[in-house]
Design a protein around this nucleic acid. Structure first.
Lengths: 136, 136
DNA sequence: GTATTTACCTAGTATTTCCATGGGTAAGTA
DNA sequence: TACTTACCCATGGAAATACTAGGTAAATAC
């Protein structure tokens, strides 16, 4: 598995906010219920999104969260990298060249690097606006 | 991370066998030492490769393992699927359509399915022979 | 036929990551 | 002042990961 619930939840929630527009603030409780996600768990995810400036937060009644920018301006890659920390497919490529003693002669490393690049380009090529258009 | 050490070790070991040809059997101990992998851990991986008919095993002195087929006939995908069990990037796509109650209306599911397909085609498009040619 | 070498089998275990849960505090609104 | 909301910190269970340990069975060499 390359993406855990944390990143997947973050993405789904961001899609929700994108659908709702930037007119009003939506409380976390509402999003958690409509998406069927644990409210407490979602809190920790929203904190990350908020601190990174992906969403705008307001306390008190009538408060909640909303997007800070237009859906076109968020790539799936940016959201996932923020919440997941890394999207590396193997640890070989994450830890830098010095981590694995065999990196200089490893026959499989170039393949992992190509895969990482491909996955990164895939995620960077999709925005929230693209996901909104998605139909089943 | 999409591929754990188990799959990565399996791949590296298969490359080793491919490099050594099918003339002689190579004992696990030799491979483990040259690759710097725990001998005992590698045992469990070789058992899987052996049972699947990917390698041929012979007991006693002069015994060991060797490839059963030519390097061109092994795709990276086949080796990884065998040892990792699954190469699904998210659990949404693994557990079948019924697993996630939101699969029919999920705005992100089509993206995960496209990613899975892309990754699968990537791995299926590379053989052991291709890895042998790899240069750093 | 005994010793050695190798693969094969079963079980256990320490560590880490994942996926939350619980309880409180601070900020803003009616 | 009461209420609603975001924010903060600590804890815990479950599963996976990456081994480790100790034995058994098969083949070969002497």
């Amino acid at each position: 598995m390359i993406v855990s619930t944390k990143g997947r939840y973050a993405l789904r929630v961001m899609v929700c906010f994108a659908q709702r527009g930037r007119e009003e603030y939506i409380p976390l409780k509402e999003i958690a219920e409509s998406e069927g996600i644990s409210q407490k768990y979602l809190e920790s995810i929203m904190t990350v999104l908020s601190k990174a400036g992906f969403v705008d937060a307001v306390h008190g009644k009538g408060g909640g969260y909303r997007l800070n920018r237009e859906p076109e301006e968020y790539t799936v890659g940016a959201i996932l990298k923020l919440t997941e920390g890394s999207l590396a497919t193997v640890s070989c490529t994450t830890q830098g060249a010095s981590a694995c003693s065999r990196s200089t002669c490893c026959q499989t490393l170039p393949m992992w690097e190509r895969l990482d690049k491909m996955v990164d380009e895939f995620f960077e090529g999709i925005t929230l606006a693209d996901l909104l258009k998605e139909e089943q």
